[in-house]
Nucleic acid binder design. Sequence first.
DNA 1: TAGATTGTTAATCGATTAACAATC
DNA 2: TAGATTGTTAATCGATTAACAATC
Lengths: 206, 206
Amino acid sequence: MTERIPTATVARLPRYLRCLSDMAESTSTCSSEEIAVVAGVNAAQVRKDLSYLGSHGTRGVGYDIDELRSHIRKELGMLNDHPVVIIGAGNLGTALANYGGFENWGFEIEAIVDVDENKIGTSVGSLVVESLHRLTEIVNAKSIKIGIIATPPSAAQGAADRLMDAGIKSILNLAPTIIKPNDEVSVRRVDLSTELGILAYHLNRP
Amino acid sequence: MTERIPTATVARLPRYLRCLSDMAESTSTCSSEEIAVVAGVNAAQVRKDLSYLGSHGTRGVGYDIDELRSHIRKELGMLNDHPVVIIGAGNLGTALANYGGFENWGFEIEAIVDVDENKIGTSVGSLVVESLHRLTEIVNAKSIKIGIIATPPSAAQGAADRLMDAGIKSILNLAPTIIKPNDEVSVRRVDLSTELGILAYHLNRP
DNA sequence: TAGATTGTTAATCGATTAACAATC
DNA sequence: TAGATTGTTAATCGATTAACAATC
């Protein structure tokens, strides 16, 4: 139960959670096969993934949906609040600050910072853009552990360095560049150009 | 050369391209080891990946950077233009329409559509938001093969259905929900909540 | 008990990496 | 030729899946 869960499994758990939410409306119990069909994966995969959370199913019956959902939420840390800071108040940073999808996961955008004097002080949703210089102060005051980089690529490494200096432990990098983390932080990168590039590649070879 | 390249390799090629751009400023040739260090992967991996493009290196010497870059670009289809349509003119769709990172890949946002009467007709960058009803017409007129779904989750499947009806072949789904594709299209999903969720999970177990 | 379904083991598959012959 | 580095094979590693005993 406390052993390390493979990242591939962690990445699938939110998907199961969504399927379970949908299923909860019509039934209170479900089989791995049913989850598998809705989630579009193999039933053995579902059972294996769920077994990392401990044994919460009942042989011959299946899984109690509500119980399973709360186990997954607990495992993913969704029961806690996770304050987040965004670096970069451009289009993408602004979109994220206004993005509704984070809240029911416990992610709350607590601050958005930028270096541009013209942006500092302007409103983004319910937030006011702060100066990057105040990053450490803000991170400490709000106990922020997660930062999102939404800067242009040229500024991304600088942003990452500032985040690491400020004591951030996890970084989501949305800038199309590779940043060098130190040993203390985990980084994940989402590169929309690469995603489109993979689709474009498959366009040519069906 | 024309054999199928593994998706994992396709996903790394853009990264190599970026490293090569950086290196091109100081040298005209480089080894797999040098690329590996900058890209943060294993040198054998680099050679294996590049070997899918055919043998373009020189033993004892390394790779010609310019030549390798154009081989990768060609393989990824970056030499062609790829018109793209965005469904959803909310914060995320607007951010993408204004996102500069796509152009040098040959991706051009040709249209952005929405169902909201209040949004239709308004400007987003150099585009005007069009009605979703005009999707097929626009897709045909501009020979669009790639669509990006930037709607709320509840509208994502409908958006996907419209895209497939219109003859779109590749879909990038940014809505936090799973869409059911037909056999004709390839779909990739980017879910920022899940990415944050994975980071949050790692926060608790270092 | 008979039927259903889990949890887990073992088999399979695919991706990564080490090693090294080929060769510049 | 000696040194360097590719391209590729074989070994390793990890993830997925099939199979089935356990058991509700």
